[in-house]
């Protein structure tokens, strides 16, 4: 089965072609990150404008690289949300037009299901499994007892972990996106600064607004006292606290639900400390972390998720399919 997939929920325009859910024939990603850097974050209207500029180029390149005949495509899968609505609608309507033009069924895929299923490119899922979803918009622990069944064990009550990284980066005067910048500085520092307890006790929920405010206050107080800030050490302190809590709750969920597999998904899965901690400290189950190229937004993950979704529901959503900026993962 060949799936053509489209992802445009934020600032990457991406089209991928995948055979039988695992064989990535092409995965073209047109990133707008250099455009949005000038604004210190993603500007939704600019993102939508860039998507419509690039979309047919990306389709063309994906088809060329996959070296298949259009008529061999069995399914079109497109991100239906969550994400920036203007951006989503460009990808969705482009995908619908392509599907109608070639008489192919189409389905809408949840963006987070995509991130989770990026892991299925590498390994066959073994259930039950626990997945830690960490990105600029999400921080969730999800339990899966079978394909396309998602039970949310806990989630962030305020900021997503990636968002907290961006805010810390801004506070200490680094650029955008903050994640990799803070991560790199943290590698050069030692966690010497006091950080608050962000464990929220025994729950699977997360909260990152407290540590973010604490960092802002620390920087502010040091400046007032005219003391020098050690940025590397501050980043290391922040990162240690955050990755500790992610690890600790993941371990607890693996144990409680007797998981056979543990997955990490989302852009923050690229974080070096998090990857190291997880591979070093989760030994009792098989651990899968996507390759760097599949951590950030891409259409391949949507294609893989779409493949499994279609196996389960075989539902052609047809031309009425539309996008939503907020949508529950079910």
């Amino acid at each position: 089965m060949i799936v053509l997939s489209v992802e445009s929920s934020c600032d990457e325009t991406s089209v991928s072609i995948i055979k039988d859910g695992t064989n990535v024939l092409s995965n073209v990603v047109l990133s707008q990150i250099d455009i949005h850097k000038a604004f210190g974050g993603v500007v939704p209207e600019i993102a939508s404008r860039e998507h419509i500029k690039g979309i047919t180029y990306v389709f063309e390149e994906a088809l060329m690289k996959a070296n298949i005949n259009k008529h061999d495509i069995d399914l079109v899968a497109v991100t239906k949300g969550p994400g920036l609505i203007g951006s989503l609608l460009v990808g969705i309507n482009g995908a619908k037009a392509f599907a109608l033009s070639n008489n192919i069924p189409i389905i809408g895929v949840h963006h987070i299901a995509g991130h989770i299923y990026a892991n299925a490119i590498k390994e066959t899922f073994k259930f039950p499994l626990v997945c830690l979803v960490v990105s600029g918009g999400h921080t969730e622990l999800i339990l899966m007892k079978e394909h396309f069944s998602f039970e949310k064990l806990g989630e962030t009550l305020d900021d997503a972990v990636g968002e907290a990284y961006d805010k810390v980066a801004r506070t200490v005067g680094l650029g955008y996106p903050g994640g990799p910048l803070v991560d790199n500085l943290a590698q050069q520092g030692t966690p010497t600064y006091d950080m608050p307890d962000i464990s929220l006790g025994d729950t699977y929920d997360f909260s990152f607004s407290g540590i973010k405010s604490h960092i802002i206050n620390t920087v502010h107080n040091l400046a007032q006292r005219k003391e020098k800030l050690n940025v590397e050490n501050l980043c290391a302190s922040f990162q240690k606290t955050v990755t500790d809590v992610l690890l600790q709750k993941s371990l607890k969920a693996i144990e409680e639900y007797d998981a056979k597999m543990f997955l990490v998904a989302g852009g923050v899965a690229a974080n070096k400390d998090l990857r190291r901690k997880i591979t070093e400290q989760i030994k009792q189950v098989e651990v899968i972390i996507p390759d760097f190229s599949y951590c950030t937004d891409n259409a391949a993950m949507i294609g893989v998720a779409g493949y499994y979704q279609y196996q389960k529901y075989t539902l052609d959503e047809s031309m009425g399919l539309s996008g939503k900026s907020r949508v529950e993962l079910k």
């Binding site: 979309i55 047919t56 389709f59 063309e60 309507n93 482009g94 037009a97 033009s101």
Partner: peptide, 19 residues
């Protein structure tokens, strides 16, 4: 209106390119 406008344009663009 930008969001509405883009919906028609992307469909025309896709048809035009694809066929």
């Amino acid at each position: 209106s930008y969001t509405g406008l883009r919906i028609g344009v992307v469909v025309a663009k896709m048809f035009g390119w694809d066929q």
